[in-house]
Amino acid sequence: MHDHDHDHGHDHDHDGHHHPRPASDIELRARALEALLVEKGLVSSDAIDAVIDRYVNDVGPQNGARVVARAWTDPAYRDRLLSDATSAIGELGYAGDEGHTMVVVENAPDVHNVIVCTLCSCYPWPVLGLPPTWYKSAPYRARVVAEPRAVLQEFGVEVPETTEIRVWDSTAEVRYLVLPMRPEGTEGLAEEELAELVSRDSMIGTGLPQTPAAR
């Protein structure tokens, strides 16, 4: 399933829908659709550029890392984050599409949280940006609700047998962010230094934050 580059010819199938040319032509079709919609005044070129710029340059896991680092250093912020994540994340200026209603789930020695969307690709854009390819692909979506320990092992994460794994399937419009445990040996670090330890995967639940020694 992960070989997305193979060709697969199909022009018209049983449902009578017109289907685009083979996948090798998909870039051409994207450019053609954009040209047509611009020509018809249905989209503007600067809007497309601006949306790409927002999600490539401004919005990404660096936002979520700031949220996590703040929660690790400010107990009152952590409490607000766990009771009303949408507002607490909004305090740092992160809001909008695919993050309208946020819930933060906290890891602890006895609980490890993992996020998935089995039905499509729901993911908290304002704090993590756009999802990695594996997150929106069939293997992860199919397996993590049924065999999370096996999946986490493939990401290099070993969760102790005594720790309850909670898999959150984003089936409605709530978007989840994992608050990972603060690594040991980080007592002296400032919030900005802590944020650099917080990986994207640690906020999905398929990774752990880096330790200072590992950097």
Binding site: M1, H2, T118, L119, C120, G129, L130, P131, P132, T133, W134, S137, A138, P139, Y140, R141, A142, R143, V144, V145, A146, V151, E154, F155, D169
Partner: peptide
């Protein structure tokens, strides 16, 4: 699209799959 619980898709991640 309703994939939860299906089997036979292979590894959950692979080189390059971290890209958005």
């Amino acid at each position: 699209h309703d994939l939860g619980g299906m089997q036979g898709f292979g590894p959950a991640t692979w080189p390059g799959a971290e890209q958005a």
